[in-house]
Amino acid sequence: MSFIEVKQISKTFRVAKKKSGLKEAFKSFLKREYLDIKAVDDISFSIEKGEIVGYIGPNGAGKSTTIKILSGILNPDSGECKIAGMTPWKERVKYVKKIGVVFGQKSQLWWDIPAEDTFDLLRDIYEIPEEEYLSTKNDLIEKLNLKDIINIPVRQLSLGQRMRCEIAASLLHSPEILFLDEPTIGLDAVSKQLVRDFIKKLNKEKQTTIILTTHDMSDITTLAKRIILIGKGKVLYDGSLKKLKNMYETETYISIKTKDSLNIKKKGIISKKKNKEGYDLVINTKLISISELLTVLSHRISIEDIEILEEPIDKMIVRLYEDYQI
């Protein structure tokens, strides 16, 4: 049996129907109409110990609901879930000792006091033995570079500094599983890099299983080998990122610097645009390979410089969402 085993989990929310206008407001005051929304619909997957899984999908796809179910905050209407041999919502106290959760949009640090005080309190909450606590804490301080910021009231920290403290706070009790809900939201490039490097290291050194939700696709490319894509509460894709790329990444951008004028029509060239120094081409690599194109081109024009760009993964995801109509 896998470390995390999710079987056919469903969760429906009842939402009161709201219509605009005063008349409708009175009507709904007297008689509410409800709408059942399936936030999570028959989701199954399993994750092995030590995996990093990117859990992606558009807003409202059911990502947060799944995370809440897996972390034991919500219980599903139906389905089973065994994580490290426990059912999260049934053995809450025992289970939550094994997990760490970082919500990118919600802080768990006390606003008016330094992060270190929060850490000390967490030590008592999780009943971490003093020795273990100190070594874990020092390790985190070093790896996340917290030394200079740990004694400043949290409200005075920048977002990037705060996020590093948040991550440290979630790891003090050395959890086996770490849920990261948009951990890089709003961070600058340097902080993002630091957080990603740290997560990678953590996974490698401690075999921590990591489930990551994000809208930043570069998080996924640098961290996760496997992704689970959900939309409208259903699992749409579960597999390696590479395979998904092969399935979808068929557009390549080529920009050519040349003084000659180019007149080319060939199967596989999606678009051709003239710019100041030459041309921008978009080709479908399934129909025409890059080398093929270059041979054709070099026969016709003299190429001064050439730049080849893969399709950005964000754009690929957009197309993916479109294909699945989510």
Partner: peptide, 13 residues
């Protein structure tokens, strides 16, 4: 309202 209650549910107390 702030959603902080979720956080309490994540602590073993």
């Amino acid at each position: 309202i702030r959603g902080d209650f979720d956080r309490l549910l994540l602590r073993p107390r």
